[in-house]
Structures are given as structure tokens and as C-alpha cells.
């Protein structure tokens, strides 16, 4: 590898109180395998902590994983905070236990992609590369 390539940075975090981090950790690893630099922030984070970290780490995107059903509230809060901080250029995507009927609403809110359980890793990577305009 060339150690001085520009690397796209992505933050993976779990807002809310649920502690199931298998999906979040797995996505972090496949993004690493795809050459991204992933900032993993762990479980039980507030939207404020996640947005502040995303800004300090200069990431291009934030991935949120949620299994508790609190996605409507917490995704919105993260997107609102990004707006407040003038950081709406940071893309937000998500995954976890999310009913299909909620996806259109999340997208309208500004979530660029939602990956439900069973989404193959290469689909996640490819979708993100398109959204972040990473040359293939």
C-alpha cells in the first residue's frame, strides 16, 4: 500500500442505550477491509457525543447502528445536530432492526442509506463508495 493515500474516514457509532454491537463491529471491519479508516466509538453514545466526535475526526460519513427501535428519534437528533454545527456535508447512514416501512421516512430525514440485517458487505461498501464518490 502507499502509506500516503488520502483515506476516507467513517465514524461508526451506536446511539441510544442498546448494547448489541455485533453488527456495528462487523461493518467497521468490512469497511476497514475496503480501505476506509473507521473511527469506532462504541455503545451507548449520545447524539451529541457522536456528532462532536465526527467533527473532530473529520469523517465523511457517520454510520449508526440501532436495534432498540429508537431509530426515528435518534437518527433525527444526529441529523439535526449536524445541521446546527454546519456539518450537513457529513453523510449519515444506518442499520439494525429497522422496519421496512420506516425506511422512506428516514431517507426523507436525510439518511443516505439504510442497511437491514442480511445486507451483504460488498453492497454496503459499494453503496457507501457511491455516496462518498470514492473512485472504484
Amino acid at each position: 500500500m502507499d502509506r500516503n493515500d488520502k483515506r476516507i474516514r467513517i465514524l461508526i457509532g451506536k446511539p441510544g442505550l442498546d448494547g448489541h454491537d455485533r453488527g456495528a463491529k462487523y461493518v467497521a471491519q468490512i469497511l476497514r477491509d475496503a480501505g476506509f479508516e473507521v473511527i469506532y466509538t462504541g455503545i451507548r453514545r449520545t447524539p451529541e457525543q457522536i456528532v462532536e466526535a465526527a467533527i473532530q475526526e473529520d469523517v465523511s460519513a457517520i454510520g449508526l447502528s440501532l436495534l432498540s427501535g429508537a431509530h426515528k428519534f435518534l437518527f433525527k437528533r444526529v441529523i439535526d445536530l449536524l445541521k446546527e454545527k454546519g456539518a450537513s456535508d457529513i453523510q449519515v447512514f444506518g442499520g439494525g432492526t429497522i422496519p421496512p416501512d420506516d425506511i422512506p421516512m428516514l431517507k426523507q430525514m436525510g439518511v443516505c442509506a439504510v442497511f437491514t440485517p442480511g445486507t451483504p458487505g460488498r453492497v454496503i461498501v459499494q453503496t457507501l463508495k457511491e455516496h462518498l464518490q470514492v473512485p472504484a
Partner: peptide
């Protein structure tokens, strides 16, 4: 060393 990617977990 294989992909150039990284998981940066110290922030946790």
C-alpha cells in the same frame, strides 16, 4: 498492511 484501512478504537 493488506488493505490500508483501519479500525481506530481508542476513542471508545
Amino acid at each position: 498492511p493488506f488493505t490500508g484501512g483501519a479500525v481506530l478504537g481508542d476513542r471508545v
